[in-house]
Design a binder for these strands. Structure first.
Length: 436
RNA sequence: GGAGGGAUGACCGAGUGGCCGAAGGUGCUCGCCUGCUAAGCGAGUAGGGGGCUUUAACCUCCUCGAGGGUUCAAAUCCCUCUCCCUCCGCCA
């Protein structure tokens, strides 16, 4: 939710919203309704003050039929005025929640193709013998046929060593985040609508989430949602900030509107596990916190030895809640281009306003800023590992960072004939021979 | 799944129709006092919205889990919802 007062008083705030390609007229209608609503509020409050005063008089004096009749009349007026106010408030809220968080001044103009490359790290290489999807299938790291039969397209089973790699990635990312002061959380993956709404997802992203239990609950697309409710309705002491959490959960996304995109492999799937960083920050410190999260992301992606670049996402591609977003894009050799692996967003006070999460100040309390960033999106990370860590002989080399967490250093090459019909197909499951 | 009890300020806790945004206590802040500490004494101490405004002050409305209702008047009565607790049943 945006700050209506700033919208009306602060031209820069409004300009930041307009850079997000807000449909013409929306802001004008919001401002007009806002003014109307405040005027009506004034009317209601005056009437209600009169009614309360009259009511107090009755309480003090004895039975007085005339005073009661007058109070009854005032009551009717208050009710009528309140009804009008209620209508205006609902209309205003409905419109206001369509207004996105303004883009920061440092965000480039434009859309998907206008991200600004900030820095590049690591050497890009030639395409491997097999792309990630072919390789994963050959190695028996994924099972797609039966997963698709039982669940549909964009569902896969991870199989054999890939399962241990997944656990290793999750464990590694959580430990790294914990070492940076992030408290581990394994939150619920089913949430009420209100949680999505307050986290800044509804109404815009409604088509992206799965409904469960007749619409009572929703499967989260990211643990950011339950993490954002951790301090809902609280006023935090300044010394409790920044409050940092690292969540791990399965994430569910409908991926509506992506027909035909990234249909091979596990690059884009409906269900995946993800480790997510989330910070609550004092407002004046959130830029610092943002840089800190990005630094952690770079150390994670860099720690896997993947060549990446950091891009400053353009205003039109930010999404409603983010004021600023950096993506880490990793080189995908088979496609010969950088693809998004992680991203970090500063929501400023946009979701804190609905969540009611504040920090105590000498006088009063201010809304906190919330930030989130991917630590490790497992299925997509595996895509990059499968291309960057397949050796010429077809074996798979486990990145050094993960070896202590998965218990093997390599997986021997396997051909098409080596694939089990299913994971329990009578073939030995387990780590390959120790490296060296 | 069935039956009952509960949710009040930073915390504990009183309050069953008006003088209650709310006793008392704890905590916290400031002051006093006492070699230091502890104790003691005095004062203060909710949040949010709107108006006005440079800020503050001031005015006003809302908030006693959430939403709705009754009433001139609701923390208090009624309804719905959420959450917590106890007992019974069921399943691990």
């Amino acid at each position: 939710m945006i700050d209506l007062r700033r919208l009306r008083d602060d031209p820069a705030y409004r300009a930041g919203i307009e850079r997000k390609r807000v449909g013409g007229g929306l802001l004008g209608r919001v401002l007009a309704l806002d003014a109307e609503q405040r005027a009506q509020r004034h009317t209601v409050e005056d009437l209600r003050a009169a009614q309360k005063a009259a009511s107090k008089q009755i309480g003090r004096g004895g039975p007085d039929q005339a005073a009661r009749a007058q109070a009854t009349e005032l009551k009717a007026q208050v009710q009528a005025a309140e009804e009008e106010l209620g209508i205006l408030e609902r209309q205003l809220r409905e419109l206001a929640r369509q207004v996105p968080n303004p883009a920061d001044a440092s965000v480039p103009d434009g859309g998907e193709d206008d991200a600004e490359v900030l820095r590049t790290h690591g050497e890009t290489g030639a395409a491997p013998a097999r792309d990630h999807a072919t390789y994963a299938a050959e190695m028996g790291f994924v099972e797609t046929r039966h997963a698709v039969e039982s669940s549909g397209s964009r569902f896969v089973s991870l199989t054999r060593e890939a399962v241990l790699l997944e656990l290793a990635l999750v464990r590694w990312a959580i430990e790294r985040a914990a070492a940076e002061g992030f408290t581990p959380v394994a939150p619920p993956v089913l949430v009420r609508e209100v949680a999505l709404e307050e986290a800044g997802f509804f109404p815009t992203d409604r088509a992206q989430v799965y409904e469960v239990d007749g619409g009572e609950l929703f499967l989260v697309g990211t643990s950011e949602i339950p993490l954002s409710t951790l301090h809902r309705g609280e006023r935090l002491d300044a010394d409790a900030l920044p409050a940092r959490y690292v969540g791990t959960s399965t994430c569910f996304r409908r991926e509506a509107g992506t027909y035909g995109k990234d249909t091979r492999g596990t690059f884009r799937v409906h269900q995946f596990d993800k480790v997510e960083l989330f910070s609550y920050s004092e407002p004046e410190r959130s830029d610092e916190e943002f840089d800190r999260i990005v630094a952690i992301q770079e150390s994670l992606v860099g720690g896997l030895g993947l060549p990446y670049r950091v891009v400053n996402v353009a205003a039109g591609d930010l999404g409603p809640a983010a004021a600023k977003k950096y993506d880490l894009e990793v080189w995908l050799p088979s496609e010969g281009r950088y693809r998004e692996l992680t991203s970090c967003s500063n929501y400023r006070d946009f979701s804190a306003r609905r969540l009611g999460t504040r920090v105590k100040r000498a006088r009063g309390a201010d809304l906190v800023h919330t930030l989130n960033g991917t630590a490790c999106a497992v299925s997509r990370t595996l895509v990059f590992l499968w291309e960057h860590y397949q050796r010429p002989d077809g074996s798979f080399d486990v990145p050094d960072a993960l070896r202590p967490f998965c218990g093997f250093a390599a997986v021997p090459a396997r051909g098409a004939a080596d694939q089990p019909r299913c994971p329990r197909g009578g073939r030995p499951f387990g780590p390959g021979p120790p490296e060296g």
